[in-house]
């Protein structure tokens, strides 16, 4: 708050120079500040490092593996984890290597997490900032719509969407993203309401900057902190939804795979070959766990007053 005040004072003297200069300085100090606080949070740092390794493994692992994800090793079907035959995580009933399949599935799961979050980010931020900035009847109408959609059992709608339009990967991105923007819109709107009465927005209005430019150049950049926190918390949620769909057999389809689909496969064979369940399940759980901790840490770092 104090920082915002300072920015406002500077703007009163020279709006144009200040709009560029202070925004830059303010942004950097806020981020560095938050970064230091984040680094002090041991759980978040450990989670961040784990996720970094996970991303590396998922991206480069399949290239380094001697096995292709769809290669069926008939000599070693349903082999338990073994260093001798080269299947470190074992193989499934048709001899596919679990390690490379888990990494390959991780690509899809993480990709869905990122892209669907991006979709919800774009919709949520534009919707929320417009509603908050214009206020009045527009705001009331727009938020009323959000309230109504919010009350709907949207998981069922995602399932319906998948059934109706087939299980295309693009559709998974869009469907999951399209139902996850509501929280983002609410949060962004709340923040925008506070921002639009600040002096620097007033100054921009006085200079005759268009509404669109004010939202894009002045409002949205100042929302980034809150939005980042929420993005980190949305990613695990989205990965979870995708796995849920894939587990029901409604998500990604063969030969593509995701952690949810692998857990589903593994659960079918778990009595005879439990490793087909345990490895993908562990990867999925560790990822979700880490993302939640990073999100928590970022919330504490960027927004110390609003912790649960």
């Amino acid at each position: 708050m104090a920082r915002m005040k300072m920015a406002g004072d500077a703007l009163a003297n020279d709006p144009f120079a200040a709009a560029f200069a202070t925004q830059d300085i303010q942004g950097r100090s806020l981020w560095i500040d938050a970064w230091h606080r984040l680094l002090k949070n041991r759980a978040a740092v450990a989670s961040g490092s784990t996720m970094f390794l996970m991303v590396l493994a998922v991206v480069f692992g399949p290239m380094l593996s001697p096995w292709a994800p769809d290669f069926t090793d008939w000599e070693h079907t349903a082999s338990p984890p073994s260093l001798v035959n080269g299947h470190w995580f074992g193989t499934d009933a048709v001899g596919r290597d679990i390690l490379v399949r888990t990494l390959e599935g991780g690509r899809i799961s993480l990709l869905v997490g990122l892209v669907a979050t991006l979709v919800s980010l774009v919709i949520g931020v534009s919707y929320g900032s417009v509603a908050g900035y214009y206020g009045g009847v527009t705001d009331r109408m727009m938020m009323r719509i959000v309230d109504i959609i919010y009350a709907l059992p949207f998981m069922f709608f995602v399932i319906l969407l998948m059934v109706v339009f087939g299980r295309h990967i693009i559709l998974i991105f869009v469907a999951i993203g399209a139902v996850n923007w509501l929280d983002m819109a609410r949060i962004v709107r709340g923040q925008t309401l506070g921002l639009k009465n600040t002096e620097f927005v007033e100054a921009a209005q006085a200079c005759g900057v268009s509404d669109k430019a004010i939202i894009v150049r002045h409002i949205v950049p100042n929302l980034l902190g809150v939005v980042m926190v929420y993005v980190t918390l949305t990613i695990p949620h989205v990965i979870l939804v995708e796995s849920f769909l894939s587990f029901l057999g409604l998500g990604v389809q063969e030969p593509m795979s995701s952690w949810g689909a692998l857990v589903n496969d593994g659960a079918q064979d778990m009595e005879s070959s439990p490793w087909t369940l345990i490895f993908p399940a562990t990867f999925l759980a560790v990822t979700l766990y880490c993302f939640n901790y990073i999100g928590d840490g970022m919330r504490d770092a960027l927004d110390p007053k609003d912790r649960v």
């Binding site: 796995s243 849920f244 857990v263 593994g266 659960a267 369940l277 759980a285 979700l288 901790y293």
Partner: peptide, 22 residues
């Protein structure tokens, strides 16, 4: 609690079955 939130129930369920039932 964080584990409870993070680990999806379709992962917990087969594991519980495996350990407690099978």
């Amino acid at each position: 609690a964080m584990m409870g939130i993070s680990i999806p129930n379709f992962v917990v369920a087969p594991l519980l079955i495996l350990v407690l039932a099978v």
